[in-house]
Simulated scan of single mutants.
Amino acid sequence: MIMTSSIVKTICPFCGVGCGICLKVDGQQKLTGVEPQASHPISRGKLCEKGWSTAYAVHPDNRITQPLKRITNKFQPISWDEALSLICDSLKVIFEEAGPEAVGVISSARATNEDNYAAQKFARAVLKTNNIDHCARICHSPTVAGLKQTLGSGAMTNSAKDIYDTDLIVVIGADPTENHSILGGHIVDAHLKGTPLIVIDPRETRLAKMADMHVQLKPGSNIALINAMLHTIIAQQWHNQSFIEQRCEGFEALASNVEKLTPESVEPITGVSAELVRKVAKAYSQTKSAMIFYGMGITQFVSGTQSVIALADLALVCGQIGRPGTGINPLRGQNNVQGACDMGCLPNVYPGYQAADAADVQHKFSQCWGGEVAEGPG
């Protein structure tokens, strides 16, 4: 007898690129193989080594499949009913002693939107606390905050396929060939086909070695460099005045803030020559369409949110947003960082980035969920 297998189409569970994979499953529902989706718009029939191997984590012999309780220094299996009762009793004791603010929920950027929505609803509607968070706290929460403040939404502004439609690619604080390999491969491919590439990074990454310009700034000097570029663009009148007048607010205040931040003035801070700063500023502002990709080399600083805001300001001043092949595009670390943030798994916002401390938002969710919710941010 020949055992037949079926193909299940899904998304790679590793990074934020979202490559399409096919899982081969035998008649006993056991994973037997992985292959790329040939027609997937992002991965285009390719997978990196992580995509080829990560799905096999569903079948290790030591995977935990039932609740375990520590009994005399060893974990022993218990029933789900017993586990849930123990958890509830423990939470009640904590509530009685210290109140709901003494508990919190950690969600997951590897979980589905549905699971993340349920986690934050459980925290707010059941536990009565806004103490809900996930790994974006140490990777891309500055993206959520910075892009929400400047653009209204903390997400990529363009599709990854625009890599092949842009006239210039700028990569700052990221190495996509290492951490987002398929997308990094698209950047390499586009560059080899003639698209200019600028890499802004203290490290000499794979992309930096092949870039038209590598801006090797000192670690932590991102804002100083971007401000010097903004100064140059505005002083040389390379900015997109019509776009600014139609779409932007606060340009005069920005121009005033960077008025004295010449490329020469930030040379000691950034370690980048004034000449190179001007070259990069001219290339980005005078190109018909330019895409910015950035990663945790931008966000993982105490000034991470301000760095994201600075990048957004750069794109807005030059009008490099709202068209194919433009925009500011964060590269997410885990496969559903974006979804976990969108679902409200953050201490200061509900689903859809609605402020957790806003009375009207609290009232809306209280009505929807049929009960009181927490008032102060987590």
Rank of each mutant, 00 (worst) to 15 (best):
M1T: 06
M3Q: 11
M3N: 05
S5P: 03
P13G: 06
C15D: 10
G16T: 10
C19P: 13
G20N: 01
I21K: 03
I21M: 11
C22A: 15
C22N: 11
L23S: 06
D26K: 07
G27Q: 01
K30T: 00
T32L: 14
G33H: 12
E35P: 08
P36M: 13
P36T: 12
S43R: 04
K46D: 08
E49S: 11
G51H: 11
W52E: 07
W52N: 10
W52Q: 13
A55C: 04
P67D: 04
R70G: 01
R70T: 10
Q76P: 09
W80I: 02
D81T: 07
L84R: 02
L84I: 07
S85I: 01
I87R: 00
D89G: 12
D89K: 15
D89I: 07
S90F: 03
V93C: 12
I94E: 00
I94P: 00
A98E: 14
G99R: 09
G99K: 04
A102K: 11
V103D: 00
G104C: 02
V105N: 07
I106R: 13
I106N: 12
R110E: 02
R110L: 09
A111E: 03
A111S: 13
N113A: 13
D115H: 14
N116F: 14
A118R: 09
A118H: 09
K121D: 11
K121T: 10
V126F: 14
V126A: 05
V126I: 15
S141Y: 03
V144A: 00
A145L: 14
A145Q: 13
G146T: 09
K148Q: 11
S153W: 06
S159C: 08
S159N: 08
A160C: 09
I163P: 00
T166V: 08
A174V: 01
A174F: 03
D175S: 06
N179D: 10
N179T: 04
I182N: 02
L183V: 08
L183H: 01
G184Q: 11
I187C: 00
D189G: 04
A190F: 05
P196F: 04
V199N: 12
D201Q: 04
D201T: 12
R203P: 08
E204D: 06
L207R: 03
A208Y: 12
A208G: 15
M210Y: 06
H214K: 05
H214R: 00
I223P: 09
I223W: 05
M229Y: 04
A235W: 03
Q236S: 15
Q237C: 00
H239R: 01
H239T: 05
Q241N: 13
E249A: 10
E252L: 02
E252G: 07
N257F: 10
K260M: 09
L261E: 15
E267T: 15
T270I: 14
V272E: 03
V272S: 10
E275F: 02
A281N: 11
Q286R: 15
T287I: 15
A290L: 07
I292D: 11
I292W: 09
M296S: 04
G297M: 05
I298C: 13
Q300I: 02
Q300L: 12
S303Q: 07
G304F: 08
G304M: 05
L311V: 06
I321W: 15
R323T: 14
G327M: 15
I328F: 12
N329F: 11
N329P: 00
L331Y: 09
R332V: 08
G333E: 08
Q338W: 05
C341Y: 02
M343G: 09
M343I: 06
G344L: 02
Q367H: 14
C368A: 12
E375L: 09
